[in-house]
Amino acid sequence: MDHKRLTLFAGHYGSGKTNIALNWACWLRAQGLPITVADLDIVNPYFRTKDAEGMLAEQGIDLIVSAFANSNVDAPAMPKEVYGLVDGRDSYGVLDIGGDDRGALALGRYVPSIIAEDDYEMLFVANAARPLTRTVDDALEVFYEIQNACRLPFTGIVNNTNLGPETTAGTVLASVPYAEGLARATGLPIKMTTVEKRLVTELDGRVENLFGLSILELYYMEKRGV
């Protein structure tokens, strides 16, 4: 799969951005590239990239995250190091943007520099099983709200339709017309169809740009015993 220096994942909250960003970062790292993950989420109090801090360190991936993430403080502050990643251009960057237009607002300050460099992919993550993005029209509403809030045009669609542990190949296949509808309406390509690793063999060759997700601990919460 081709890639740019910066990959940004934005979308409706709970669409799977953080999880996909972590998997994408690991995949890029496996190609031997220097990778930095930047957590730009100012809206989500729990389940942050910080949960994966140890795993990222093991793979030699740098993480930029607010000092307040996963703490008892709700301070929507952005670390200064994000400028280093966006302007410095030394490392490949994977940017995890907060949910909806409110989350995307925080991206705005970096956009002039990102557009000037013009080596980015801005991906819209959509899950047709999420109640507020079930139809193409509903998803488009969120798509344009985000784009207007951060002023960075999307360049591709990520179809992440899933029901968590209850996802089957059928869930993914049934979402193909939805993803194609989104692509048609926006004029953008389907960059990836993301599925859990366990479904990759079954879906191989049946959906566009299949990308297997091996890191799922964030949303299963199994490590917390819940």
Binding site: Y13, G14, A129, R134
Partner: peptide, 16 residues
């Protein structure tokens, strides 16, 4: 589309 939806607890309260 799928019968079930994937929801946060807070969203489930609101929709219900």
């Amino acid at each position: 589309m799928t019968e079930k939806v994937l929801m946060k607890g807070n969203e489930a309260i609101a929709e219900a």
